[in-house]
Amino acid sequence: MTSYGDERPQWTPASRYRHALRLLTRRDLRVRYSTSVLGYFWSILDPLLMSAIYWFVFTQVFHRNADLEPYIVVLLTALLPWMWFTGAISDCTRAFLREAKLIRSTKIPRSIWVNRLVLSKGIEFLASLPVLALFAIFSGATVGPGLLLFPLAIVLQCVLTVGIGLIVAPLVVFFRDLERAVKLILRLAFYASPIVYGISDLSANYRSILSFNPLTGIFSLYRAGFFPEELDWFAVGMSALISVALLGIGVFVFSRLVRNVLKEI
């Protein structure tokens, strides 16, 4: 047997973490794309189909009287990040159970099981952005400087999604019912977030209530580049506040529960 001698890598916890995160994310993408012919198209087919349905329902069947045009861009600017959010959270309900064998046999920093889901869904989200660009171009949407807020929206969404994921993932191990509850809540959240409508469509009352949904502020940032009237700094502020708070709670809950999770799986 040979020995590596001096070339043993000097891992710092952070570099080891990144290394494992990269490997697992690549594994997920590889598994997904090596076992399907359409690969990448599946990840954009879902939001596209949903957009087509909502577009048809709200512009052809019911004639929406709102100022935001083109409606397909309204939909896509929120639907694509919504797919990231909902995909990551519903995957988090199985974060530990699906990887039980690996978790039982390999020492990997435990928060990776949440973060890698947010990351791989996030990569799919980024990969779906060309679709948004295409529709924006062909539907004649106007683009403004608000587009520069896009990265801020991504950062906020990362914080929010990781925070909720850290709470949901360990709790599901003990309360399996939570898996179903999360699905229901996500469905409710879909309509309680400005996705098929914009906050500028709403009355002042509803608008201020909706600001307490952290997704409102995030979607308002995504839309700011195309629809300046959608940018609502109060909602963004609330969103940042709630997201950071949820991340704090998530870190606390996760660190308290993780030792019991390891026993249970």
């Binding site: 590596y4 290394h19 494992a20 690996l102 390999t106």
Partner: peptide
């Protein structure tokens, strides 16, 4: 890799 080997190793 998950057990801490680099690609070169």
């Amino acid at each position: 890799g998950l057990h801490g080997m680099t690609k070169r190793m």
